[in-house]
Design a protein around this nucleic acid. Sequence first.
DNA 1: GTTGAAATTAGTACGAA
DNA 2: TTCGTACTAATTTCAAC
Lengths: 213, 213
Amino acid sequence: MMSEISRNGATGGGQPGRIGIGLELDEIHMKILEVLRENGRISVAALAERVGISRANAYTRFEALRADGAIKRFTAEIDHVRTGLGITALIFVTVRQQMWKQFRAELARMPEVEYCAITTGQHDAMIQVRVSDVAAVHTMVTDRLANIPAVKATETVFILDEVLKRPYVLPSDRDQAARAQRRPTPETQGDVPLGKMRFVGAAEGRAALRKDT
Amino acid sequence: MMSEISRNGATGGGQPGRIGIGLELDEIHMKILEVLRENGRISVAALAERVGISRANAYTRFEALRADGAIKRFTAEIDHVRTGLGITALIFVTVRQQMWKQFRAELARMPEVEYCAITTGQHDAMIQVRVSDVAAVHTMVTDRLANIPAVKATETVFILDEVLKRPYVLPSDRDQAARAQRRPTPETQGDVPLGKMRFVGAAEGRAALRKDT
DNA sequence: GTTGAAATTAGTACGAA
DNA sequence: TTCGTACTAATTTCAAC
């Protein structure tokens, strides 16, 4: 039902961290992942053909990727609107320090939470919830989250539209985007003042896009 | 590579909207989705057994769910750290009104973007990116996003840890959480001041959890 | 909506390159 | 390692109930 997933170690960049433990991923492994993220139910035989290796090899690599953990699981993407959970919201949570364990434990008891990440910045965590109506969001925030001592404050935002959702990003995508990257002149930074990445004041002229709460 | 997905219509709650078009989802359909989101590669035969229906019935329903769009696709969940994309960041974007089309078009050209949602609140959109190191985030924001005229401002936040990621939330989960919901007293709102859901000031005593930019 | 049997396909094992 | 083949087991299809 729930799953602990890899720590990022956002300081990263330097040490290889957990990378390299287990098998080395070559180009063919990446190709396999590429196919599998688009069609998780493809047969290994068809996979072998699309990647250009023998069936036996495909079975070996497929199993290796699974055993190594590079492939964590296979899943079905579901249309939430069709299943009656058409409302999606993001709740930014400020957590009392040293009460993280409790916060995590409570999260596990909330099935409407699809995703939770610990973030830098103004808040400590972001959770994404899927519910049937806007009232359920309010209930969730005021009744359930508010009852967790670890939660100091929240800020809720509704998702109006999910524009893009890629199955899973892979490094090989970068290569395909190489040409897309060649644009007028990289030096010309346009008219957008983005020197610092954080806390660029961004509250102006967006009176629209606001229909709730 | 990219996929347009369902509009939420956050006003929701009232009209059934797109729900009901196509097939009615009964309890068994939900059970099927439940199994499939956890194990997208299970055989239909095994699925039938776990759900408690005949194989022929399972095939019929499986195909119906696929055709109807309730199941959008099957995908493999990949360990990003193992594939070399260990850094995850959220970029909140303020978009110039009436330049949304351009913004979306540019998004499609950025393979490092895994997710993009249009939100209410302080910003207009949130995008999630996966890259190999923190420098790549900076490059992405200053070189690529800054060059899009539609982008007025951005605010970047790093994800330090992904605590929870459910394959896909279903309404049936709510039922299982019914008992979890029974807690001391729902009226006792604890010590958290959460009357309004939005813009509860949340900048205090979180000096830690900050290692970047 | 179910069961059971045929046809097809998937998964395994092993020797050769 | 990877490939090709033969073998075994399982799945999917299609029929009748």
